[in-house]
Simulated assay, not measured.
Amino acid sequence: MNQTITSRLQTEFIARFGNEPIVIASPGRINLIGEHTDYNNGFVMPAAIDKKIYCAMAKNGTSDQCTINSLSLNDSFSFKLDAIERNESTNWINYIIGVVAIIRKEHKLDAGFDILIDSDLPLGAGLSSSAALENAIAFGLNRMFKLAIPKEKLIYISQEAEHTYALVECGIMDQYSSAFGKEDHLLMLDCQSISSEDIPAIFEPYELWLLNTNVSHNLAESEYNIRRQECRAAIQLINEKFKTIDSFRDLTIEDIPNLEKILPEILFKRVSYVIEENERVVKAATALKDNDLVTFGKMLYEAHEGQQNKYEVSCRELDFLVDYSREVSEVLGSRMMGGGFGGCTINLIHKDIAESYVNDIATAYEKEFQIALTPLKVNIDKGTYILD
């Protein structure tokens, strides 16, 4: 927890609004391996991290007037509870009003409220800042209005807000890992049963570093939704020409030769990537349990190759960082993380050379792209909680 931020947030909230707020800390997440598998009912391996969005909120004495202020974005907006509409110009607003609107479908919010937001979580870096914000709002409203909504349902409220207001058809991984994260543990999450196994995050003497490309190509959200459409199209063809399935989770490595015969090339690449990525997640979990970091690192590199060449969601900047790492033996693994077309790579780097490596790769990256690289060492932390 960033005590500097929480202290400033509470002080600033009281100064602006005159009420004592509750404060919610909601973490971003990393995903060690298992990309684009969550919405295909597959396996993923996320973890909550020590970078968070913080929300202070309190009722304001009105019947329906709500005011939202973001210190980190230096932006604000207001709305009435009985006149919630999707914002067409500023998308971060939709994550908030979406959660409010969906909660109001089944629960009474009988008073207006004020929210003040701050963050040390980088935006647009593939760390699921949107899920962190959605969870913070959902958890805060749940406490403030004494709604008694179970945590298991709150994450689906957050997901629905992203689908219907931010218009991104995300799976459940981001909201789940932000809410259910456990300190010093990864979550081996089965997105079909929505259940997880805690895996100790033991990487010593290696460290987890994110390298933020600081690029976010315009393709990111549109191509994400296109990949989902391609997956649905592939399922339809498989049902028509091969066998009945509900999702790619019903397919195995042994099915790949038959799938290649019946699917167009693009759809075959998407399906075979997901099948292989699910296998990699399982192998990666076994490797971590066996403290086999070399095999785990190999899985990261193989995952990136699949994202680059089969799912086609990487970009030149991400590929450059991964290729650079292959020449350094003290880096056991690297891959792009997140939806793609920018954001971060996740890297497993020996602690003895981590800082010098980060400096060297940042220099090479800036020389290649004239863009500054932002490194971030991350630690595994607990999920969304309310400060007492």
Rank of each mutant, 00 (worst) to 15 (best):
N291P: 03
Y273C: 02
D184P: 05
Q175W: 11
S193K: 15
Y224T: 07
M299V: 00
S119H: 10
N359T: 13
I371Q: 14
E20P: 04
W92N: 06
I117Y: 02
I275N: 00
L318V: 15
D198T: 10
N258M: 11
H185L: 03
T252I: 09
N69Q: 13
H163V: 06
E230G: 04
Y301H: 09
L211R: 02
K367S: 12
A287P: 01
G338D: 01
Y206R: 01
S195P: 01
D50Y: 08
Q159N: 12
Y301L: 09
E330N: 15
E302D: 14
T37F: 00
S325E: 02
E169P: 03
A15W: 05
I68N: 06
C55S: 10
A364P: 01
E330S: 15
T244Y: 08
N19T: 13
I149G: 03
I194A: 05
E302I: 04
I102H: 05
V358N: 08
N19A: 15
Y357W: 14
N74S: 14
T345E: 04
E106F: 10
S329G: 09
L127E: 06
P205C: 07
Q229V: 06
I380T: 06
L147S: 08
C170I: 04
N214V: 05
D198V: 04
D352L: 13
L211F: 08
G171H: 00
M45F: 08
G28A: 03
E197D: 12
R8H: 14
T67M: 10
K269S: 11
I172W: 00
I275R: 00
E152I: 13
S325W: 05
T374R: 11
E277P: 00
E355K: 14
S158E: 06
K59H: 09
P264W: 12
R227K: 11
E197Y: 05
K59I: 12
Q159L: 12
E223Y: 09
L81Q: 09
H350T: 08
A166N: 11
F341G: 01
N347R: 02
I371K: 14
I117R: 02
N2S: 09
S325D: 03
G112T: 07
N214Q: 15
T4W: 05
E355P: 02
E35S: 07
S76Y: 05
L73S: 07
R232Q: 15
M188F: 15
K59M: 13
I349Y: 07
D352P: 04
S26W: 02
K367T: 14
Q307R: 02
E20S: 14
N309P: 03
V328F: 13
L387R: 12
R227G: 01
S325Q: 05
G98Y: 05
P21V: 10
T62I: 09
T345P: 03
D381E: 13
D120G: 08
A148D: 15
I157V: 15
W92K: 10
D75P: 03
R232K: 15
S356P: 02
C170N: 12
A372E: 14
F248E: 01
K269A: 11
V322Q: 01
H107M: 06
A148Y: 10
N2T: 07
A25H: 06
C170G: 07
V274P: 00
E265L: 12
V322L: 03
E317V: 06
L210K: 00
N309I: 04
I157K: 03
G340E: 06
